[in-house]
């Protein structure tokens, strides 16, 4: 059943206040609601070098009440495989193993170990929180950065290439559950984590986490930017369960009512797009429209 109101979410907070994350962090909001869907004592989180490591704090204190293992940047998939095998070896059951990696640790650096873990069918949830760049080290370009964005490694021409189709790569492994979510729609995000937890096998989730300092928009607009990304089709909310594709939440309503916003509305509020040309906006719009058409067609086919 879909959660419809904020009051239905558990009130328990597994992240104690006073963390090292920036004010208005999209990851922080994602993590807060994700942990509500997971159990305190029976969850093990694996984290590569990322903003998440910063959030988890400096020894000897951590603000997070779940067990966490820090691992090298490229080794998230291998690390969780070891954790799952270790739990099996000592006979501990009922644990949910979750990997939380950024887009750099998923799209670029961690893709090899992730692919290995998915191929082995390791029983874990992989969460990629996509803030579209290496935000922790100072906004460098990643293969998840959108075309037209200024980063510190593409400062003059802006990024020329479109975002990599990571979901396509993950889907090719034929895993039982794939979902996309956004912290601007926390109820949908919570539901997807509950669903992911109930399924066994490899599960992949991609969360679009807006980053105010990296993208260049005011802190207070975090939720607005997240909603605008979904409204303009930059990020689409859906889940793929055993190959069955379904749009969810706002994206489903957009498909039914057809009131999609233009990419130009999304681009204008962010300083990382300050050098984007009209031609680049047009191409980004075409790219999003094409993908949107494909996804709606697939949704209609699978939900007849």
């Amino acid at each position: 059943m879909a959660t419809k109101a904020a009051r239905e979410l558990p009130s328990q907070e597994l992240i104690l206040p006073g963390t090292r994350s920036c004010a208005a962090c999209g990851l922080m909001l994602t993590y807060r609601h994700a942990l509500k869907a997971l159990d305190e004592g029976k969850t093990i989180v694996a984290v590569p070098a990322s903003c998440m490591t910063v959030l988890h704090g400096v020894y000897p204190i951590t603000p997070v009440k779940v067990i966490c293992i820090n691992n090298p940047f490229a080794a998230t998939g291998a690390s969780v495989s070891g954790i799952v095998a270790g739990l099996k070896a000592v006979g501990k059951e009922g644990y949910t193993v979750v990997a939380f990696a950024g887009d750099g640790g998923t799209y670029d650096i961690g893709i090899q170990s992730l692919s290995g873990a998915l191929e082995r069918g390791t029983n874990f949830i992989y969460v990629c929180y996509d803030n579209e760049g290496y935000m922790n080290t100072g906004t460098q370009r990643s293969s998840a950065s959108p075309a037209g964005a200024i980063t510190t490694t593409t400062p003059v021409l802006a990024k020329l290439q479109h975002k990599k189709d990571m979901i396509g790569i993950v889907e090719a492994h034929r895993i039982p559950y794939i979902a996309t979510a956004s912290p601007a729609f926390p109820l949908d995000l919570y539901d997807k984590f509950v669903t992911a937890k109930s399924i066994s096998g490899s599960r992949y989730m991609e969360v679009h986490a807006p980053c105010p300092p990296g993208w260049g928009f005011p802190n207070k607009d975090l939720i607005k930017m997240g909603k605008l990304a979904v409204d303009s089709g930059i990020h689409v909310l859906y889940e793929i369960r055993d190959g069955k594709f379904s749009l969810t939440s706002r994206s489903l309503r957009l498909a039914e009512k057809g009131r999609k916003k233009s990419v130009a509305d999304y681009v204008v509020g962010q300083t990382r797009f300050r050098k984007i040309s009209d031609e680049q906006v047009r191409r980004l719009q075409e790219f999003c429209d094409e993908r949107w058409e494909e996804l709606v067609k697939r949704h209609n086919k699978d939900n007849g």
């Binding site: 104690l16 206040p17 006073g18 963390t19 090292r20 988890h56 704090g57 400096v58 020894y59 000897p60 204190i61 951590t62 603000p63 997070v64 009440k65």
Partner: peptide
């Protein structure tokens, strides 16, 4: 291993 406590980054 770190232990959980509030105010890891000080009084934010």
């Amino acid at each position: 291993a770190s232990k959980p406590a509030p105010g890891e980054a000080g009084r934010t």
